[in-house]
């Protein structure tokens, strides 16, 4: 996969790998770049992955994935995503970091035999923006609570080579 650098217009190869113990320590110390408390996901059943450029070891984005087995939701849940501070908003350095992380979740869902289904429960106020940023998601409203949305299927994602 490739990340687009806004200043130069160039694309740079990036990789996604599982977080190591050392990475968690780095992220914990780097409070200026990451706001979530990622350390508490270190020992949980979910898996935390990092995205970085191939040529550096600077973490640019993080994703926490939870696998739901075939007998239950039969999908990969995106529990959390965070892009580093310098890559958010108007002056961001690299684009499409979260998009690459979401595509990676889709790939994991295929590889782990969940049919490409990815689940996340977005904040209601963000739902339409996820749809704008990542394409027309199949969503439906929870009948029990009108303000809660689910994103049951995200099968459009084909990670770039």
């Amino acid at each position: 996969m490739f990340l687009h650098e806004y200043v130069t217009g160039k694309c740079h190869p990036a990789i996604i790998e599982l977080m190591t113990k050392k990475d968690f320590d780095v992220v914990k110390r780097d409070k200026g770049r990451f706001k979530f408390d990622w350390h508490k996901y270190k020992l949980q059943i979910c898996e935390v992955y990092k995205l970085q450029l191939k040529r550096t070891n600077i973490i640019l984005g993080l994703i926490c994935l939870t696998e739901h087995c075939k007998e239950t939701a039969d999908a990969i849940e995106i529990s959390l995503i965070e892009v580093s501070a310098e890559n958010r908003g108007k002056g961001k350095q690299y684009g499409n970091i979260a998009g690459c992380l979401i595509a990676f979740a889709c790939q994991q869902s295929i590889e782990k035999d969940h049919g490409g289904y990815v689940l996340l429960a977005p904040k209601t106020r963000l739902l339409k923006h996820y749809q704008t940023a990542y394409g027309p998601l199949y969503t439906y409203q929870n009948r029990r609570k009108a303000t809660r949305y689910h994103v049951p299927g995200w099968r459009r994602g084909r990670p770039s080579d």
Partner: peptide, 27 residues
């Protein structure tokens, strides 16, 4: 811009159970 950079955790407790049950049925 927030949606382009963050996914927040979903509901917890019984609400999460209900969400997962509904998703399981959908799936």
């Amino acid at each position: 811009e927030i949606a382009e950079s963050f996914v927040f955790p979903g509901p917890q407790g019984p609400e999460r159970e209900a969400m997962l049950a509904e998703f399981t049925a959908f799936r």
